[in-house]
């Protein structure tokens, strides 16, 4: 399912809403999650899962072609932990 298919399914479930509003609802949800993570916040959606940001410390990497050592600065990685209910659903419903 892509974002546009998600929009289509949400529209089908809510025939009384404008397509434009449906699109804004879906975009707002994912934009808010992204914005929270960009601030360094966690997003916890009970039963679904939690998004958080993990940091990877700076390290000395290597250019694989030349073997030259290069400094890799600290970076932040978004991480998703599946919620308990969703994990259970994946293993019973499928």
């Amino acid at each position: 399912m892509t974002k546009s298919e998600l929009i289509a399914r949400l529209a089908a479930a809510n025939p009384h809403l404008y397509q434009r509003d449906i699109e804004r609802i879906v975009s707002t949800i994912f934009d808010e999650i992204s914005a929270a993570l960009a601030r360094g916040d966690r997003v916890e959606l009970r039963g679904f899962g939690a998004f958080s940001v993990k940091s990877r410390g700076s390290r000395v990497g290597r250019n694989p072609r030349t073997g030259e050592a290069v400094q890799v600065s600290e970076k932040h990685i978004p991480y998703f932990k599946t919620g308990k209910q969703l994990r259970e659903k994946l293993n019973t419903g499928g």
Binding site: T28, I29, E32, I33, A36, R39, D41, V43
Partner: peptide, 10 residues
């Protein structure tokens, strides 16, 4: 930071 965003915020 370290705030937690929930369903209510979204």
């Amino acid at each position: 930071a370290g705030q937690t965003v929930t369903r209510a915020h979204l």
